[in-house]
């Protein structure tokens, strides 16, 4: 039992890391630009499919793992000026416009790859499991956890130790005050938007060997990203990390004790946290 619980907690961490990657981009775009992007799940979806396609074409998961997020990030970065017209609109209008875009992305995926789910195999070296004494754990999931840890550390360094990160943190307070210093906030926005999209794309590629690839994984990712952002606190990097891990662990441990409730458990967890801390775990305002 203990070993099973431990394995579910580890699964939760692995899933949580993927949730974090999906949510952090959405959280930062909202924190900085007040832009509510329902189409953010589309980047995750596209990441998974572009990853699938790259594996098909090149036979290399590693190539897909690097190539797909860069593709998604670049496309998002270059198309950010088109999104920027939405920043000034009300949140209702942003939701309507980006919901439409999410549907367009989803239906485009259906057109290109049809509705049947696809399988992406884990790369050769990551098939099977590793044993730590009694505790046996799938190699690929362990790999996802390692990628997540490295990525979270890298992002933290970027946000806390570089000028770009300082501008990003400052930008969540006031964009006018940033512009007064001669910094072009729109360029920072565009880069950040691309970074967030690329991370969601990376989450899509990483999730593919675990859960397969299908055209309706976008809305699911969006719902989870919302929960993670609300639990962690809007605009907070560490909030997204803590929220992702918490939701991942809640979800996978519930599936042991009460499998039927594992889908709803994260919403119960979110409601509980909202009652205790309305701003989320690490939210400010």
């Amino acid at each position: 039992m203990a070993s099973m619980l431990l394995s579910q907690v580890a699964n939760g961490v692995g899933i949580g890391i993927i949730y974090f990657m999906i949510a952090v981009g959405m959280s930062i775009t909202f924190g900085m630009m007040r832009f509510l992007n329902i189409a953010h799940g589309g980047f995750y979806l596209l990441g998974a499919y572009v990853g699938f396609e790259l594996v098909q074409q090149t036979g290399s998961f590693w190539f897909a793992l690097v190539g797909a997020p860069i593709c998604i990030g670049l496309v998002a970065w270059l198309s950010e000026p088109a999104f920027s017209v939405l920043y000034r609109l009300s949140h209702n209008m942003q939701i309507l416009a980006t919901l439409g875009l999410a549907l367009v992305i989803q239906e485009t995926v259906v057109l290109v790859w049809d509705t049947v789910g696809k399988h992406v195999a884990a790369p050769g070296g990551l098939v099977g499991a590793v044993a730590f004494g009694d505790f046996v754990y799938p190699r690929y999931r362990l790999f996802v956890i390692c990628v997540g840890v490295v990525l979270a550390a890298g992002l933290w360094l970027l946000l806390e130790r570089t000028n770009y990160g300082a501008v990003l943190r400052a930008g969540t307070q006031s964009t006018d005050d940033i512009e007064l210093l001669g910094i072009d906030i729109r360029r920072v926005f565009a880069a950040t938007f691309g970074l967030g999209a690329g991370l969601a794309g990376l989450a899509g590629v990483l999730a593919a060997p675990i859960r397969g690839v299908e055209p309706f994984m976008g809305p699911e990712a969006l719902a989870i990203a919302f929960v993670v952002v609300v639990v962690g606190g809007l605009g907070s990097f560490f909030g997204a990390l803590a929220g992702g891990l918490l939701i991942g662990i809640i979800q996978s441990t519930t599936s042991v004790f009460w499998p039927a409730a594992s889908g709803v458990a994260m919403y119960v967890g979110m409601a509980a946290i909202m009652l205790i801390r309305p701003r989320g775990l690490l939210g400010r305002a």
């Binding site: 300082a166 400052a170 969540t172 307070q173 006031s174 512009e179 007064l180 001669g182 906030i185």
Partner: peptide, 23 residues
Amino acid sequence: RTCAIARQGVVLVPEHRGIFAEL
């Protein structure tokens, strides 16, 4: 744009000072 004007050399120190609290 504001950032271009600042780069050209007209720099405003606003009344609220615009210090970034988290930095």
